[in-house]
């Protein structure tokens, strides 16, 4: 049985309701939209999309709403000989889709279906001299890819692989820390809430969070909340539901999620729901998509919204799954 949120937040009585059943239907229906232009333009994100959809369904308490066997069968086809997963069948492997595939398989407890050692080979091959990780064999680096690599290795319990130099990874991430306390995509890059999430997540997994000035960064993250309750990713940018996750999970890893106004944020997320089709948009009034749906729902779960399955702030997976594989003590 999945653990529901223990501490439940008092939800503003005038806030809209969570359209739980509609969101389940929305996600189930995603595969039937094949005539949309968007659908094939995002082909390379199909595995990521499956992670977003299945994670949202798990947090909504409907883990069986998608056909698990079909998903596993499909993911197996996306793994390459070098161990990495492509974003779709026949697509080149990438660290982003590799992490998504591993997350889905662990959530369904079906790691047995793939060759785990090969995944580790693939990830180890992506570490650069400076400790960072590339996204693929093409060589582009970004702190996002570091998090994908470390997150994935941690889920697979392979952080002790001798080929890795994790101290260098920590040093690299610390070099990406800025004067405002936040983190960017590379040393000197502007602080951005999503990059903060991946850097704080990496340091949390590697037990190196002491490199962060939690009070300074906690304040910078809290500053992301705007008057309407929504959060933005950088100063003077628009609020966006996905930042509910990047900002809130970072605050949570720093033990400072209580610094922002939770009821106002809950209301903001709920107002971004599409009452006709289900799903959540980036902000109220816009078209929903599966990406904002999962991060909106995960944000609500982290905020203690009643009736949702608890989510883990580091891995963005159901907390009971992270407990099952024995990683909870880490943070």
């Amino acid at each position: 049985m999945s653990a529901l949120n223990e501490e439940t937040t008092v939800v503003d009585a005038s806030a809209p309701e969570l359209l739980l059943d509609q969101h389940v239907k929305y996600i189930q229906a995603l595969d039937t939209k094949k005539n949309d232009l968007e659908y094939w333009l995002t082909e390379h994100l199909r595995v990521n999309g499956l992670y977003w959809g299945s994670t949202a369904l798990h947090i909504l308490g409907h883990p069986d709403a998608l056909d698990q066997e079909q998903i596993v069968e499909y993911l197996v086809k996306c793994q390459h000989d070098n161990g990495g997963f492509g974003g779709h069948i026949d697509h080149d492997p990438h660290i982003l889709s590799t992490l998504s595939a591993v997350q889905i398989l662990i959530t369904y407890d079906r790691l047995d279906a793939i060759q785990v050692d090969k995944v580790v080979d693939y990830i180890a091959s992506l570490q650069n001299e400076d400790g960072s990780f590339s996204g693929d064999s093409w060589g582009e680096t970004d702190t996002r890819f570091i998090f994908c690599a470390i997150n994935c290795l941690s889920l697979l319990k392979k952080l002790d692989d001798k080929r890795l130099d994790l101290q260098k990874t920590i040093d690299y991430v610390v070099r990406c820390r800025n004067f405002d306390g936040g983190f960017g995509s590379s040393p000197g890059g502007e602080s951005h809430a999503a990059q903060v999430y991946v850097c704080v997540g990496t340091l949390t997994i590697l037990g190196a969070l002491h490199h962060v000035d939690a009070d300074q960064l906690g304040w910078w993250l809290s500053e992301r909340q705007l008057k309407n309750g929504g959060l933005n990713g950088r100063p003077e940018k628009l609020e966006d539901v996905c930042y509910s996750w990047w900002v809130l999970s970072s605050l949570s890893m720093l033990n400072r999620s209580h610094w922002i106004d939770a009821p106002k944020l809950i209301r903001f997320i709920l107002e971004a729901q599409d009452t006709e089709t289900g799903g959540i948009a980036d902000r109220p009034g816009n078209m929903p998509d599966v990406f904002h749906t999962v991060f909106g729902i995960a944000g609500l779960s982290l905020l203690g919204y009643p009736g949702l399955v608890a989510v883990d702030p580091v891995y963005c997976m159901p907390r009971h799954v992270i407990q099952r594989i024995g990683l909870v003590e880490k943070h």
Partner: peptide
Amino acid sequence: QDDGPNPLVPIAYTQEYSTTMGYFR
């Protein structure tokens, strides 16, 4: 495109896209 025998995510490509990608592959 090989979507597998029983695709979870069968893709109805537009004609131009699917042909172009076929040549690219």
